[in-house]
Design a binder for these strands. Structure first.
Lengths: 342, 342
DNA sequence: GGCTGCTGTGGAAACGGTTACCCAGAGAAA
DNA sequence: TTTCTCTGGGTAACCGTTTCCACAGCAGCC
């Protein structure tokens, strides 16, 4: 940061006090039309921009918000981050983005940094939501919106209906006639992974289908985990006819190794994902997936946070539910084995 | 931001002056071991963290850097952003991420915001690099590192060898025996799109192959543009036997519509991309691509910027070249038509 | 004519840190 | 003894804003 032109420079040059310049800039208080014009001219001439830092110090708001996501490389989150950023920039807020790597300790670090830079609010796609995190958030004391974090918490929350996403995809598989349906889950012990697993289990139970222990495997939410899960399933003596994946990245990684090993998709095995990221449509076969509209997540989260920041809502914590839907594509079909073929 | 505990509170409580507390915190100047311990205890007890904002105001450095990318949803950039952020967080810097949408006006907006929040430095994957941008950057006066922006500029720059990426992929196609090779480019009038186009043209010229006007089309760098280019090519009377795409997103979109329309890849037509994003490996057929190592870009850009920030390098603008390589996958093969088949 | 209320402006105190400068004492060197 | 250097620590100015007061002029009203 170089030596910058200050409000006092402008004031001196325009022959007024800095108070008046400030009033002019913030459009509050009275300032004569001619005076205003004089100030405007000087401001333009010097290309003066007030220092956000000094403003922040004085007003105690930084107009900067923290956005913490578990994995910015996950297209669901990068797309959501993009949209959140655009919406907030328009409202005069900047966004500092943190990638927690889905790690509890790093979530805490992110929060510490967010606090020290004086974030006015926090958008938190937390993966752990342990007590420690919640008490830390309360201590910091700024408005918080939790995203995709299903645990009970004293903050506004934005997510889909609990246990719904994989319920939809599993139902779809069941309706196609599958009975041996496996599940590839995300990072264990996280609320969202739990919710995805429950959706699968609920659908299976509702249909009276047994769930084999070895048909459930949980690694992480990235494509590398998907590859590992795929390798695992391909080695089973009794392979499922369909696999419900906890998100699209897992599904894509899974498809890759299964295709590599000569399985037909959906001929031998059907695959479903969750999130409906762009790439689920770009791959072949294109992936049947559950829509998680990152734009809607962004919109609701921003709306909720802005209302808190502006004090236009001060009531009890709210829960915003984002509607979902199933997109059926080429990766799912009726099972072709045993009963069917015989 | 709530009322916070200040350095003076700590000083009072520890029975010293705020100067001493500051000295203790910043480990400069002399402070007695016992005094230090007393301060440490109080700091911990009150969970005191100095206000970055107040520090910034006084020291004139915000420890915040701006990162401006054309499209955060492009995996190359989201991956690079992720890595940059991690590297810098470790050095005590936070990163404010901007998505310019590959738009000149929005690039200017991003710069204005970056300046007003007092960014100490700017990492700029600029797509326009017009004069206006460069003079604006010089006016702001903080260290700048340009990423993937091939125009001459008075700042450190990080990119691959000029015109190299598509040169590699086009050479590969030529060596496979293709003669009718088309090109699907990115946003026209950007330096990077120009470089990608030149690589293709150079390889063609070098091999003495003619380039048809209608075999070159330039839209944008996203998959939607790729789809449009694919639709266009699929309608040509004289289709090429291979298409060199300016990046992977274009290639993926292209492959989607071509497969949809019944073309075999690589049987009827070979496709190449650039960037080697994760999804180029996850799709089928997996995409032949040119490696652009986002991690290397991140590392060099951060290194260059840190050196400037710390003043450990103050010389002429430098150019950092990131090595590339070709990854041959299933989307390319020898042409199977005419001469070959006859 | 004295009040009241509105317009237009300025002085100066914060906001929470850092740091230049000054001072005191102790031991070492002259 | 005097002077110098080193350790340890306090005073106060300053970074660039905002904002609380204060004040002056003027119109309208009783």
């Amino acid at each position: 940061m170089k030596k910058s032109v200050t409000i006092r420079d402008i004031a001196r040059e325009a022959g007024v006090s800095s108070t008046t310049v400030s009033r002019y800039l913030n459009r509050n208080g009275y300032v004569d039309a001619q005076t205003a014009e004089r100030i405007r001219a000087v401001v333009e001439q010097f290309n003066y921009r007030p220092s956000r830092i000094a403003q922040s110090l004085k007003t105690r708001e930084s107009h900067n918000l923290a956005l913490i996501v578990p994995d910015i490389q996950n297209p669901f989150y990068s797309s959501m981050a993009d949209k959140i950023q655009n919406l907030l920039l328009r409202e005069g807020y900047t966004v500092t983005l943190f990638d927690s790597g889905a790690d509890f300790q790093r979530e805490l670090t992110c929060l510490a940094v967010a606090e020290s830079i004086g974030a006015d609010g926090i958008l938190f796609a937390s993966v752990s939501s342990r007590r420690t995190i919640l008490t830390e958030l309360e201590r910091i004391g700024v408005p918080v919106v939790m995203i995709n974090s299903y645990d009970a918490c004293p903050f506004d929350a934005v997510h889909g209906v609990r246990n719904e996403s994989t319920y939809l995809s599993t139902r779809h598989l069941i309706e196609l006639g599958h009975r041996e349906i496996a599940f590839a889950g995300g990072t264990p012990e996280t609320a969202i992974a739990q919710s995805r697993k429950n959706g699968y289990l609920n659908a299976m139970e509702e249909a009276g289908l047994p769930v084999r222990r070895e048909h459930i495997i949980e690694m992480g939410f990235d494509s590398e985990s998907g590859r590992k899960c795929g390798t695992y399933f391909s080695a089973l003596f009794e392979m499922p006819t369909a696999i419900c994946c906890a998100n699209d990245l897992i599904a894509l990684g899974m498809m890759q190794v299964l295709l590599e090993r000569g399985f037909q998709i959906p001929g031998d095995i059907s695959i479903t994902g969750v999130d409906n990221i762009e790439y689920s449509d770009l791959c072949s076969p294109p992936l049947t997936s559950v829509i998680n509209d990152s734009g809607e997540f962004a919109k609701m989260a921003v709306k909720a946070l802005l209302e808190r920041l502006r004090g236009s809502y001060t009531g009890e914590p709210r829960e915003f539910l984002i509607p979902r839907g199933l997109v059926v594509r080429g990766s799912t079909a009726q099972p072709q084995r045993k009963e069917q073929e015989a």
